[in-house]
């Protein structure tokens, strides 16, 4: 088991392995459909199910629900998002304290953004402070958020605080909610396509540690596969 010295992987072997991988257009269509659904591209998913002649994996309306929630969060309407999540399935928030906390935190951020300082303080005291005692993560998040009030658009505001006001923070919360909803439907919370790429990155890193790969392998693969298909029989 010569693990210590690097193995050499020859071009031919690598090409053959790539070629031998069993995958059809239908398989890949499934991957793409999964991506469209998980990422919430409803119309695209609908069109795709027609064009590619595929059964829809889910009710397309459920995608729309999910996207409405996401959009509500992205425009800062946290209350609307929470109502909609509860309409969809109250258990999602009941069983996920961390998610609920992050939504409340987002709500606090939105109050501060709108300059509703009194509301922000009241909300923080009534809703968030008690949760802060539940876990150290909640507490430090609460502190970070409250720091927004201390700096109040001062240029001295550290990036770690100001980023709470960025669209990225909204996206992050929206993504977390999206994942939780998907999970509640027992769907993957991440598109399989993303998982595939993670696995590839992991695999290539592992492989590079252990073996020398042929250079420029990918170009050649493509050409080779194409050639074989064209030449046919």
């Amino acid at each position: 088991m010569p693990v210590q010295q690097k193995a050499k992987i020859y071009q031919e072997e690598w090409e053959r392995r790539l070629h031998d991988v069993q995958v059809s257009k239908e398989d890949l269509n499934q991957l793409v459909m999964d991506y469209l659904v998980i990422e919430g591209y409803k119309t695209a998913a609908e069109e795709f199910s027609k064009e590619a002649g595929m059964e829809s994996p889910v009710d397309f309306d459920s995608i729309e629900n999910r996207m409405n929630i996401r959009e509500a969060l992205q425009r800062g309407d946290v209350g609307e998002a929470i109502t909609r999540v509860n309409d969809l399935n109250p258990e999602i928030l009941d069983t996920n304290p961390s998610l609920y906390f992050h939504l409340q935190q987002q709500k606090l951020i939105e109050y501060i953004r709108q300059g509703k300082i009194a509301e922000a303080l009241q909300f923080a005291q009534e809703e968030l402070a008690p949760r802060g005692e539940e876990s150290p993560e909640f507490l430090s998040e609460l502190e970070r958020t409250m720091a927004l009030l201390a700096f109040e658009s001062s240029p001295m505001m550290p990036a770690s605080v100001s980023e709470l006001l960025s669209p990225a923070q909204r996206m992050k919360t929206a993504a977390e909610v999206n994942a939780a909803i998907l999970e509640s439907f027992s769907q993957g919370k991440e598109a399989k396509l993303v998982s595939l790429l993670r696995l590839l990155c992991w695999g290539e890193a592992m492989l590079e540690e252990r073996a020398d790969l042929p250079k420029g392998k990918q170009e050649d693969n493509n050409q080779m596969i194409a050639r074989e298909k064209l030449t046919g029989a």
Binding site: M1, A7, R17, H19, D20, V23, L196, R210
Partner: peptide
């Protein structure tokens, strides 16, 4: 342009990569 969509190539690479790792004795594969 490539004869195959990048998506397909990525899938093939992933699969081949994992197989090869297994043969190299990487148990996780």
């Amino acid at each position: 342009r490539p004869a195959h969509p990048a998506l397909e190539t990525l899938y093939r690479q992933t699969s081949a990569c994992v197989t090869r790792l297994g043969l190299l004795g990487v148990g996780a594969a």
